[in-house]
């Protein structure tokens, strides 16, 4: 395969004295959706924060299109084309919906291109156009998630980091949002790294998947393969087989590291 657009090698990050990710390596190829699955506290969000420069890594490298970007300031990383759509939406509550979207384009100077992308985002999320003048804090959770994704798109990212877009949304809304995520990928060619706890919807959407546990990658395969694997079915998709002991199979192996 060709050189990945985003390559993370042996990354280690700390929250104070606590090692949150322990030697993580991930590859994202252009045009793909790569998902990182894992339970609470597995280090998924830390991984994204380290890539987007909110946190500095202790060790390891991050390459975007062959250029190493680890430890840069967040604004420089956004300028190079990595945008982070944070967990829990994080909109600017008192700015209007349109102002929020335009803040996504803060690092851009091509006015015409920004206009085009704004229309593109309104095309995917018509509700945002209806509420363009309304303060973002008055939107519902699902609308705020759409706004956060739209705002990220306005940065015209080479790689979009999506942190738990399904968080706190109804199953119907989750389906709607992931349909749009898939369309953005196929129609606009947006490359994405998608962190999720909702393994089913994430594996349905993604091309490739990683599974994280306590700061390490424990599985790594094509999304359909992962979706078919026993571990995933048991622990993330909730498929129970009668008589099977609830011991994770990769834990039985000695070589998983």
């Amino acid at each position: 395969m060709s050189e990945p657009i985003l390559r993370v090698d042996n990354l280690e990050s700390y929250y104070g004295p606590v090692m949150a990710i322990r030697g993580v390596s991930v590859e994202v190829h252009e045009g793909q959706i790569v998902t990182v699955l894992g339970a609470n506290g597995a280090g998924k969000t830390t991984l994204l924060k380290t890539i987007s420069g909110i946190m500095d890594p202790e060790k390891g490298t991050i390459h975007l299109e062959g250029e190493s970007i680890q430890g840069m300031e967040p604004d420089q990383i956004v300028r190079r084309g990595v945008i982070h759509v944070p967990e829990g939406r994080e909109v600017f509550p008192l700015l209007s919906v349109e102002e929020n979207l335009l803040m996504g384009a803060y690092t851009r100077n091509d006015k015409a291109g920004v206009r085009n992308d704004l229309e593109m985002v309104y095309g995917y999320f018509p509700i945002l156009k209806d509420k363009a003048r309304q303060a973002a804090g008055t939107l519902s959770g699902g609308q705020q998630q759409m706004l956060a994704i739209g705002r990220g798109l306005l940065a015209k990212p080479k790689v979009m980091l999506l942190d738990e877009p399904s968080l706190g949304l109804s199953p119907l809304l989750v389906k709607e949002i992931f349909t749009i995520i898939k369309r953005l990928n196929t129609e606009q060619g947006v490359t994405m790294m998608l962190v999720e706890q909702n393994a089913k919807v994430a594996l349905d959407t993604a091309h490739h998947g990683y599974v994280m546990e306590i700061g390490r990658i424990v599985m790594n395969d094509k999304a359909p393969v992962l979706a078919a694997s026993k571990d995933i079915q048991e622990f993330y998709l909730g498929v129970q087989e009668a008589g099977e002991r609830t011991q994770k199979r990769w834990k039985k192996r000695k070589t998983w590291r």
Binding site: S52, P74, V78, I83, H84, V85, E90, L95, A155
Partner: peptide, 23 residues
Amino acid sequence: TKMGVAMQASSQNQMAAYYMGIP
């Protein structure tokens, strides 16, 4: 102005301002 809105944005949600590449 862009800078004015960015100032409002960073006062309303500093973390999100970092995510958007606002210095």
